[in-house]
Design a protein around this nucleic acid. Structure first.
Lengths: 404, 404
DNA sequence: CGCACTTTGTTCGGCAACCGAACAAAGTAG
DNA sequence: CTACTTTGTTCGGTTGCCGAACAAAGTGCG
């Protein structure tokens, strides 16, 4: 039995062909030649070498276009697996996917990540191991690990993160330790950025190159996709919109200003607001018990008036920011993610209204605003997908695979 | 006498080398080989073909690095010329530059562009001819024309512009007509975008790939540079920030909302505001005559209290928007252009203050904010530069030149 | 000064990528 | 059954790029 196929070449044309095979799922050599402008002989040559790596395989014959039937070449989605880790403020979740973003295993656990870095790190390893065990495949087929952190990530030193948001993690090299534990490359990025990646590959933004992903959870953050790539800004803090001022007369924020978006929208704020509103909505299903964010979301889905009011108010505040984003960036789409997105149309409806009254340019206003449908796993999925993206851009990252 | 050199090749390496020669001004073949990672023989070959085109030339010997002295190769800045046209709301200005952005001629003229498209078009041709005459060179060396319009430009159909802002121009194909008149390629883009291009090549943003240019003139617009390229958005209206809402209780705007940036900042608004303030500042140098925007700017430069007040108020309003931009995009720099930028530090000082109170993230706040120093000609210069950029990306655009 | 060593730019033979032409295999249309 | 397409491969040729070798023109040290 052969263990490990030929090493994957990574010249320009190989990348192009590999990407094409991945996107098209089943495609003939002749079609790729037409698509890339190369000759059939050249494509045939490249495909031959890719077949040796085990990363692609012939999948049978396609429909004739008036002549000999083409041999369809496809991507072997199961050739490798990827771990995606969502390191939240208060939880850790881990996903194991194949190369088509399919979930092979999933583990989640509450944990005080902010204050207990050692425990969180052990938890990551345990959950990662559990996922790999559940999957049951050969661990040498693990391609890499993607990690999402709730903090800006400096593109120049991705390892020196978490300074302000997770102070206890200072000096903690997540990359080195995970690399030592699993023996594969580790990639780290901001959670909102990776949520955007998930939407672009598997969610509402498939095929859209310019869009903005808004994650509303413990805090508020944005992932900005421009030209199909995440925009990080000069120092990696692009998208940190929690402290955009939306109301000069609003409440005091921890940052020293008044009326930041973060003083209105975010888990803590929504829960508090629901508590305040209990007096006005004594019949709410939320009355009686200490409300948490999950309960509020559930209540909104049952059209509970109090919960709907909380969601509407949040939508109004988000609308101010979204309108600003539309005017400034003119994205093709705006996707809302995070827990609040569960509310779906109950959130998006009022949000669209708030935006419509604040944008002039017709085409900006026409930009469609949607709720994510990827659920809890969006960010972890995005973290895994980030590794896949890195692989398609640099095929050397794919492990050697036994040819089919 | 030879007329027209060899046609310029446009393979990948030729583009790289041409760009390198342009940027370095004087560079040896060996140095280019080190820089590009190619071998000296390959570079020598490419340079040889470029010498035949007349676009580059040997400029003498450089300093020895311990061996034979290198032959320095340089870009022939005077090999071609470019026309840049700034089509403002109420004026037309035209610049003629060489390939290093040096002004060879300059003409400007007030004109009701919005209501008289035929007249404006004739004016463009007349001013363009005047510039070419003043220069006195061979018109076959005109490489192209760049046009800046005060309106969003759809990247997919750059010719179908000006719908809302310049309604009288509906169906007017500027591109076709100028192409017919001058016989060279014509490029059209938005004025703020082209202002940003000028700053990136000749102004405050030289060497910066991510920055935002704010143009404050008749209206307010932004040019957003990301990764060294203009960000246009899904439908080409990115940067149209005049109708970002900054004060829910502000005055009514033509767009139907309240408190748009455009209700506070812009030629008309500043002049009106100065008029209102005359009562409070009877000693102002602006008292007595009908103030215009130019007079206000001049007065501010002389530290006239009224004018300074107008500028400060504008800075405060702009600060709200700039803070939002910093939080969202984290640009390396923000450049202010347009007439108001003449006020220099008198505008930027209060603007920095306003921004500082509204941004949390230290690195975002650290982004430096500057006033343009390119003056009136910035936009026309940017229009010309756009053609140069197109040429460096696609050398075929350079006209055949007689070798030196 | 003389000599060893560098650096530059060119020449030239060779490798690898890519192409086009030709061809066999396998289909469709009439 | 025949004429025509389409696919995928083979094969010889062109082209871009490289490395080695070399002459020219420097530097630095004894």
């Amino acid at each position: 039995m052969i263990r490990g196929g030929a090493v994957v070449p990574d010249d320009e044309l190989t990348r192009t062909v590999l990407d094409l095979v991945w996107r098209r799922r089943e495609v003939s050599r002749a079609e790729m030649a037409r698509d890339t402008g190369r000759s059939r002989s050249t494509i045939s040559d490249v495909v031959g070498r890719l077949l040796d790596t085990g990363l692609v395989a012939e999948m049978g014959a396609g429909r004739s276009r008036g002549g000999r039937r083409p041999i369809l070449v496809g991507f072997r989605d199961q050739a490798a697996v990827i771990l995606g880790i969502d390191l939240g403020a208060t939880h850790v979740s881990v996903i194991l996917t194949n190369l088509r973003g399919r979930t092979l295993a999933w583990r989640e656990c509450s944990h005080p990540v902010q204050t207990d870095p050692e425990g969180a790190e052990a938890l990551i390893k345990a959950l990662g191991d559990a996922c790999l065990c559940e999957w049951g495949g050969d661990r040498s087929r693990l391609m890499g690990i993607g990690v999402a952190v709730p903090s800006p990530v400096d593109p120049d030193s991705p390892d020196r993160v978490l300074e302000r948001v997770l102070p206890a993690w200072r000096g903690h090299s997540v990359i080195e330790r995970l690399n030592a534990a699993f023996g594969v490359p580790v990639f780290v990025d901001n959670d909102a950025n990776l949520g955007a990646v998930a939407e672009r590959w598997w969610g509402e933004a498939v095929g859209i190159d310019d869009f903005v992903y808004l994650k509303v959870a413990t805090g508020v953050g944005a992932g900005i996709m421009i030209g199909g790539r995440i925009h990080r800004g000069a120092t990696g803090v692009a998208g940190e919109i929690g402290h955009v001022a939306i109301d000069p007369g609003g409440p005091q924020c921890v940052c020293g200003n008044r009326g930041c978006l973060a003083t209105f929208v975010g888990t803590r704020q929504l829960v508090d607001r629901a508590g305040d509103l209990l007096a006005c909505f004594p019949d709410s299903v939320l009355a009686g018990s200490e409300p948490d964010i999950r309960a509020i979301e559930d209540a909104a889905l049952c059209d509970d008036p109090l919960a709907l009011q909380v969601v509407r108010e949040a939508a109004m505040r988000l609308g101010i920011v979204v309108a600003g984003v539309l005017n400034l960036l003119n994205p093709g789409s705006v996707i809302l993610g995070g827990g609040l997105a569960r509310a779906g149309e109950r959130l998006i409806g009022p949000l669209r209204e708030a935006v419509a009254t604040r944008t002039l340019v017709a085409s900006a206003a026409a930009s469609d605003i949607r709720a994510s449908e990827l659920g809890d796993r969006a960010v972890a999925l995005g973290a895994a997908t980030h590794v896949l993206v890195a692989g398609l851009a640099n095929p050397r990252l794919f492990p050697g695979v036994a040819p089919a």
